[in-house]
């Protein structure tokens, strides 16, 4: 008797959830479909079944700006790669010190590090910009990458500290008895064990850097140096609502890496957010 209402309630729930999911993702799916439509169809086809499929939007979009879109993809890839390496190296080093070393002022420094997690980039951008322009780094990737080499993404330092604290200290002690110093313990014992934390860091750094617009907009003003978000934005401004198809096509291209990262790294993403609350 009680099974029937439960079954129908569960069916209703699943229907509701699927409907909601569809409504949420509908605009994105529609954008993908529309990128395959002729321009004049985009503004009168709210549906998902295209009358005709054509790839010309992709060709048009690819060559619509000063450089082929591939150029901006490469620029973004360079920035992302630099930021990922920077975060992995610098944050893991800082995390090892905070989690395992006993030094003067540790509590104070740790609190300072936590304090910088919530520091909005907007508050520091002006002096940062002045510094980097004094160094003649505007329109290079250095202002985007060098801060990551200096462990300024405190989120990841914190994530890694938490992870290292969960590793048994006996392992360090054993290595120490064998005569290993801290660099050796860090490289040979701790780093291999913290691969999950490194993976979480990699995937979040990848997605955030790929999406980052504010600092790339400020530091990259030469079209040669544009990354994908900045290029896409200049596309929007240069074409006054005439070539939505091409714009959608390049938007889809720019979202593809994020989507792939999401598919590959889901496990680490979910774990990462659940343990640290990052977005």
């Amino acid at each position: 008797m009680t099974d029937l209402p439960r079954a129908s309630r569960s069916a209703a729930k699943h229907t509701g959830l699927i409907l909601l999911g569809l409504v949420m993702l509908y605009p994105v799916i529609w954008m993908v479909v529309s990128s395959l439509r002729p321009n004049n169809e985009i503004f009168r086809s709210p549906g998902l079944v295209p009358d005709s499929v054509q790839l010309s939007n992709y060709g048009d979009g690819w060559t619509a700006l000063a450089s082929p879109f591939g150029h901006y993809l490469v620029n973004s890839a360079i920035v992302v790669l630099g930021c990922v390496i920077g975060n992995l190296v610098s944050c893991s080093m800082a995390a090892y010190a905070f989690a395992r070393l006993d030094f003067t002022g540790r509590k104070l420094f740790f609190a300072t590090m936590l304090g910088t997690i919530m520091l909005p980039i907007h508050v520091i951008i002006v002096p940062q910009y002045i510094l980097f322009s004094e160094l003649d780094w505007i329109n290079t990737f250095l202002p985007l990458i060098v801060p990551k080499l200096l462990a300024t993404d405190a989120f990841f330092v914190f994530l890694m500290v938490q992870f290292i604290r969960g590793l048994p200290r006996e392992l360090d002690e054993a290595a120490r008895i064998d005569g290993a110093g801290h660099p050796r313990i860090f490289l040979r014992v701790i780093l291999p064990l913290m691969v999950p934390a490194l993976a979480t860091t990699t995937i979040f750094t990848f997605i955030w850097t790929w999406n980052d617009f504010f600092s790339q907009l400020i530091y990259l003003t030469d079209p040669e140096m544009y990354t994908v978000p900045v290029a896409l934005r200049s596309f929007v401004d240069s074409t006054v609502a005439t070539s939505w198809g091409a714009m959608f096509a390049m938007s889809v291209v720019s979202l593809l890496p994020i989507f792939l990262a999401f598919l590959v790294g889901q496990r680490y993403l979910v774990k990462g957010i659940a343990t640290t609350g990052i977005k």
């Binding site: 190296v89 800082a94 010190a97 030094f103 300072t112 520091i124 940062q128 200096l150 405190a154 860090f186």
Partner: peptide
């Protein structure tokens, strides 16, 4: 000494990129 070495990048970041600019 070890901590100083491990935290060197972070110290530099703090002075030049985060707390310094604040």
């Amino acid at each position: 000494k070890a901590a100083f070495l491990f935290l060197l990048p972070w110290f530099a970041g703090l002075t030049l990129v985060t707390a310094g600019p604040v």
